[in-house]
Design a protein around this nucleic acid. Structure first.
Lengths: 111, 111
DNA sequence: ATCTTATATCGCAAATATACGATAAGACTA
DNA sequence: TAGTCTTATCGTATATTTGCGATATAAGAT
């Protein structure tokens, strides 16, 4: 890439983009589903459920964690992961607001 | 990348991921804002408002179009772009459903 | 027909993302 | 202490994304 231009956008735009980026892979969406459906949250269980290698799952978990969508705490030799509902709610409402805001201002498309 | 594994997830997971991917750049979020705030929809106006080259904006528009988030029609020598509200609503509700579904099943985090 | 204007596409370079196996790190167990 | 189990990180290969300038295309103007 020539130069990074992402910084030239507003913080909110960057935040939303980062959130979207974290969700921009089916494996990560599947992981979020697993984390919610069971209260288990153990890395190994996720590995068993997904068609991916352990290291790959670990990488996806790290990205979700970096994006703030999940939290991870060490539980003996295991790692317990859980969804960060607060962040989720925040981004969900931010998205909804964006959509609502857009829709409000321009109900019908011009093309 | 070794092998593509994205196909091994459900179609819904892939759809959501693709939607998120389309939103996963501040420039594209900014474009969506511009498309909504003005009824203009002209490519050149977007170029003027963003800190990006014309070709780069055109590429982002193409990606948004490929993702189905916007529509584009040729208007003489110009291109008129508009938000595809239908797709937007669909994905928004799908996201909301995902969030709600997750939150319902697991109110409190275990870690 | 030629020029201008607006947009799309091509071709390239650099950054990121994605995937895996190998290995390190940390915590229980014998 | 040594062995085992679980998870994280490293190193590497490839795909994709991102960005730009250059060029092609298409429509209107001269």
């Amino acid at each position: 890439m020539a130069i990074h231009k992402k910084e030239e956008f507003t913080q909110k735009e960057q935040d939303l983009a980062n959130f979207a980026k974290a969700m921009a892979h089916p494996a990560r969406i599947a992981i979020l589903k697993v984390l919610a459906q069971r209260n288990a949250c153990i890395c190994g269980e996720i590995v068993d459920l997904l068609p991916l290698a352990q290291s790959t799952v670990s990488q996806h978990l790290k990205e979700l964690k970096n994006a703030g969508l999940i939290t991870g705490t060490i539980d003996g030799p295991r790692s317990c992961y859980c969804i960060n509902w607060k962040a989720f709610e925040k981004f969900n409402s931010e998205f909804s607001f964006l959509f609502a805001n857009l829709k409000l201002k321009n109900e019908k498309a011009c093309c």
